[in-house]
Nucleic acid binder design. Structure first.
Length: 166
DNA sequence: AACATGATTGTTGTA
DNA sequence: TACAACAATCATGTT
């Protein structure tokens, strides 16, 4: 439903959105000497920061987390990330914003944590250069636990969903 | 053995 | 402002 009401959506350049036939699990294109993703990363900043927090999952990904479980339950035979991705994408679009709301909330929470982690990460980087890495490791261990706890609290607050979380 | 890939959308990051 | 790359997943494929 893309009406022409929008102004100028410049969001379709490389997105070919080409229909993919039944792409089996394996069977990628022929091996080419194209730069591996890892190499690309290195070119950018090549920073082996094991502590660097990864990007927070968007509402769609949060939804996918749940969707994957359900999808696999009804389709245990399906083994292909693309299958779940496509199905999830369609379902996602099918959801109303009201249903996406809970996922967005979660995504927002994730983002908040991400910012916090980034802040801590930046702080560590400033303080410690290379020798402080060890010290920062210890702190990291504890941080991990904090993450789960935070999510738990959030889940407990929302009792609208089935008692899935417990 | 280990990494890359495919597919989805959204968000973040960089120029 | 606008684009690029990446976030999870998982079995297979290539190196």
């Amino acid at each position: 439903m893309k009406t022409a009401k929008g102004k100028d959506k410049v969001k379709n350049t490389k997105e070919a959105l080409k229909p993919v036939d039944d792409r089996k699990v394996g069977k990628r294109k022929a091996p080419a000497e194209k730069p591996s993703k890892r190499e690309i990363r290195k070119e950018k900043k090549a920073k082996k920061d094991p502590n660097k927090p990864k990007r927070p999952p968007s509402a769609f990904f949060v939804f996918l987390e749940d969707f994957r479980v359900t999808f696999k339950k009804e389709n245990p035979n399906v083994k292909a990330v693309s299958a779940v991705g496509k199905a999830g994408g369609q379902k996602w679009k099918s959801l109303s914003q009201a249903e996406k709301a809970p996922y967005e909330e979660k995504a927002a929470k994730r983002k908040a944590d991400y910012e916090k982690l980034i802040d801590a990460y930046n702080k560590n980087m400033e303080e410690g250069s290379d020798e402080s890495e060890k010290s920062r490791s210890e702190v990291n261990d504890e941080d991990e636990a904090s993450e789960e706890v935070s999510l738990n609290v959030f889940s407990a607050g929302r009792t609208t969903r089935k008692g899935k979380g417990r």
